[in-house]
Design a protein around this nucleic acid. Sequence first.
DNA 1: GACAGCCTACTACAATAGTCGTATTTTTAG
DNA 2: CTAAAAATACGACTATTGTAGTAGGCTGTC
Lengths: 140, 140
Amino acid sequence: MTKDKTVRLTKFELELMTALWELGQASVREIQEKLPEKKRPAYTTVQTIVYRLEEKGAVRRVKKIGNAHIFEAAVTRQSTHRRLINELLDLFGGSARPLMAHLVETGKLSLEDVRELESDLLKQDGQPAKGEEGKKRGRT
Amino acid sequence: MTKDKTVRLTKFELELMTALWELGQASVREIQEKLPEKKRPAYTTVQTIVYRLEEKGAVRRVKKIGNAHIFEAAVTRQSTHRRLINELLDLFGGSARPLMAHLVETGKLSLEDVRELESDLLKQDGQPAKGEEGKKRGRT
DNA sequence: GACAGCCTACTACAATAGTCGTATTTTTAG
DNA sequence: CTAAAAATACGACTATTGTAGTAGGCTGTC
């Protein structure tokens, strides 16, 4: 079910997707305007990318307002992020540990962060909330 | 000081670099053979990429053995990884927290991992680790 | 119902990236 | 010394990305 395709996106495409994820549904114009001014490409440039994203199956047209098409993401931020993370992880031998270590070394992650993360984990793990949670127990 | 340039590498270039990092110093032939057979491109393909990497300043020629050039990485794995991580982090709003969360959610990071990480942090932070903690040992 | 404006659908083109083939130059085994 | 083997130096081509112009189609407005 959560089998949504994880298309490979370039950096720029990713930025458009990010804009779209935030907008929910939007026209090319809105997407373009959502991009930071410094690197805001021409309207047609954005249009082209959106079309390509559509071909890749990353976005889809949902409706038409006036004569403008309204798009929305067809892949979730989640799955896209997951894909990126996995790719990065591969570089680190597939394990998150070295990545963590690196984050710590470069000061991106502090002891506090880790502690808080731990307590969050405990909460989730200790008392399995109501509902479904038994699926992702990848404990080795 | 550690001001080594972080060139932008494509996925494939990254694979070559990984091979080279592991080899230390190597000829084009060696790099090529280090790549997994399934996706091992022609010798000249690898050669081309190595040359481009050289232009980008990611590798350099160190010497010549016979008529073969020997290359070595000119950028560290560290800095390259750091760059990639930062890029990924940007997607997560620049903070490592959401990234962590994501790792946990997808089962890439367990409570155990977090705990161990924490104790490592304590060791490093509290008192300079005793001995084999050194990850920046020069040559392998 | 003519027009200004916004959109779309196409087309184009340069810069990268990915892949090699080939003609030469070296090195090296006989 | 000579020929095969191994590298090199280049050139070429395709695919993908990044960027955008243009012609023509709706639409809302006097």
